[in-house]
Write a protein that binds this DNA or RNA. Structure first.
Lengths: 287, 287
DNA sequence: TTGTGTGAAACGATTCACAGCT
DNA sequence: AGCTGTGAATCGTTTCACACAA
C-alpha cells in the first residue's frame, strides 16, 4: 500500500509552468505589501525588484495567467492580488493538520504566516500520550489514534509532517489513506507516496549542505587568487583528508560532537579512482 | 550599502551543475543509511530509489564528480560517502550562528540534524535583552550587540536568520559586514545582498501556497471527470468569488480568523480582463 | 552479463528584443 | 513615450539509449 511514484508526481499543472507557480507566492507577497501602502499600480520593473526576480521573467509569468496589465501603465495592484490569490487557490481556506508537535511542530503551530493567507491550522497531532490535551498555540494537542477521524471531520487535504524521520513514512500513509493529498514534509526522509499526492519537502540540513558547497568553493577560489584578502577563512581550512580523520572539535560550545565523516576504509581501496574533479588525491587512497 | 544582485548570485559552481549540487545531500543521506546497515555496494538503480530520483539522473550527477563506480557492480558505499562529503565541504566543520531565537530559532537550535554532518551551532543571537543569558538547547543566548564580535571570533561564514521579516534585511547586512558569506533565511522576505553572498530561503507559507495551487487543480479536475469518486472534497469547494467575500470559518478550532483575500474593488474595475486561463469570469467583475 | 558513464535528443526555463497597445 | 505581452534565441536539466568496462 502507498508505494507509488516517489517525490513530486505533479501531473503538470494546467498550462502554468511549475517554475512560475513557485514564484506566484513571491509576487503575491510583494503585491500585498504595496497594497498595504495603498500603491495603486506597479510596473513589471518595480514589482520584479520587490520580488527579487527580473522583469522579463515576471512579465512572462503573468502572461501565463492572462493579460492583467495595462500597456504604458503597469499592473493594478489590487486586481493582481486578487488574480494571483485566486490562481493559487487562496480564496478558499485550507484546513491543515500538523503532525508531530516537538520543537519544530510547535514552532510551526505558532508561526503567524501559517494561519494568514487562507490556511487554518485545524489540528495538532502527536503520538506521545503525555502530549495529548496539552495546549500548544492555544489549541489542544490530539493523539495520533484520532488522526483519521480528525482528517475526515475537518475535510483536511493538506498535512504537515514534523515528526522524526523514522515516523514520517508511516504518518504519510495514514494521512493519505484518510484523504490527504498534499504533504509538506519537514522530516529528513524521502516519502514514497502514490500518484496524485503532492509532496514538498523542507529540509534544513540539505539547505545548509548546499551553502557549505558554495562556501567551500569560495574559499578555494580565494586561495587561488592572490592571498591577503579580508574575509576570515572557515575554521580548519587545512588538509581535507586530515580533517576527516580526527574529530578535532574546535570550539565545543555544546552541540553534539559527531565525527564529521567516515573516511574511506577497507574495501574502498578496491575501487580505482580514475578522474577526480581536480588533482587532489585523497591521502588514504593508494597512489 | 549591501545592495547588489538579489537572491542567489551563485557564481556558477566549478563544473558541477546547481541541480546536481542540490541532490548531493539527498544521495549522501541515502548512502549514510546504507553505510549504517553495512551495505558494501549499491547500484545506481537501488540508490536512486532510496533517494527518490531516477537512476539515469543519478548516474549523470555522479559523472560530474568523477568516475566513482565500477561497471557491472555499482558504487562502493563508503567511498562514495566520502567523496560526496568532500565535494560538499562536509569534511571540515562549519560554525554557524542562529539569529532570532523565537519559536523557530529555538526549534532550529534544538534540531539534531543541524549539529550532525559538519555543522556546529557556534552561537545563538537575539535582539531581546530579556533573552540574553537564557539557555536554549544548552547554550546561552547572546545579545545582538555582540553579533560582529561573535562572527569574527568564531570565524563564522554561515548565518541562519530566524527573525521576524522586518528585522531580516538589517540582520543580513550586519552578518555580511562581519564576514558571513552564506545565509539561510527563514524570514519571509526577499533579502538583498551583495554579489558573492549566497542566500537560500526556506519559506513555509510559500510551500503551502504551492501545495494549495496543486490541490485546487486536483479538485477542479475531479469535478470535471465524472463525480462520485472517493476522496473528500476540501472544505468549501463552492464558488470562488463567494468564498472570497465572507470569512466563512468552517471548523473554527482557534487559529487566527484572517479574511482570506480582498476581492477586487474600486479601481480594479478599470482594468479590462482580456483572456483569463479559462472561461470563468469572477462574479465581481463587470460583464 | 550486468550496470556504469556519457554523447545526443528532448524538454523546460530564462533571457532577449521588439511589435503593439494605451 | 512608456510598458506590457510574447515570439525566438539561449541556456540548463532531464531523459534516452547504448558503447564499454568489469
Amino acid at each position: 500500500m502507498a508505494t507509488g511514484r516517489t517525490h513530486r508526481p505533479a501531473t503538470r499543472s494546467r498550462g502554468i509552468p511549475e517554475a512560475t507557480v513557485a514564484r506566484l507566492p513571491l509576487y503575491l507577497r510583494a503585491l500585498t505589501a504595496l497594497s498595504e501602502r495603498s500603491v495603486p499600480t506597479v510596473s513589471s520593473e518595480e514589482l520584479a525588484a520587490a520580488a527579487g526576480v527580473n522583469s522579463a521573467k515576471l512579465r512572462k509569468d503573468f502572461s501565463y495567467l492572462g493579460s492583467y496589465g495595462t500597456r504604458g501603465v503597469g499592473y493594478d495592484v489590487e486586481y493582481l492580488v486578487y488574480q494571483i490569490s485566486r490562481e493559487l487557490g487562496l480564496t478558499q481556506d485550507w484546513p491543515v493538520v500538523i503532525v508531530g508537535i516537538g520543537n519544530l511542530g510547535a514552532a510551526l503551530a505558532n508561526y503567524g504566516g501559517f494561519s494568514a493567507r487562507g490556511f487554518r491550522v485545524a489540528a495538532l497531532i502527536d503520538a506521545d500520550p503525555a502530549m495529548a490535551g496539552k495546549p500548544v498555540a492555544g489549541m489542544p494537542v490530539q493523539h495520533t489514534d484520532d488522526l483519521e477521524k480528525i482528517i475526515e471531520e475537518n475535510g483536511v487535504s493538506i498535512g504537515v509532517i514534523a515528526t522524526p524521520a523514522g515516523a514520517a513514512q508511516q504518518v504519510s500513509e495514514r494521512l493519505i489513506a484518510a484523504g490527504v493529498t498534499s504533504i509538506l514534509n519537514f522530516a529528513p526522509t524521502v516519502l514514497s507516496v502514490p500518484d496524485g499526492v503532492d509532496v514538498r519537502k523542507v529540509d534544513l540540513s540539505i539547505e545548509l549542505q548546499i551553502l557549505a558547497f558554495h562556501e567551500q568553493r569560495k574559499a578555494g577560489e580565494e586561495a587561488a587568487a592572490g592571498a591577503g584578502s579580508a574575509a576570515p577563512l572557515p575554521s580548519a581550512a587545512g588538509d581535507v583528508a586530515e580533517a576527516a580523520a580526527g574529530t578535532a572539535g574546535a570550539g565545543g560550545s555544546g552541540a553534539a560532537p559527531s565525527a564529521a565523516v567516515e573516511p574511506p576504509a577497507g574495501r574502498a581501496a578496491a575501487v580505482a579512482r580514475k578522474n577526480g574533479p581536480e588533482g587532489d588525491v585523497p591521502a588514504v587512497m593508494p597512489a
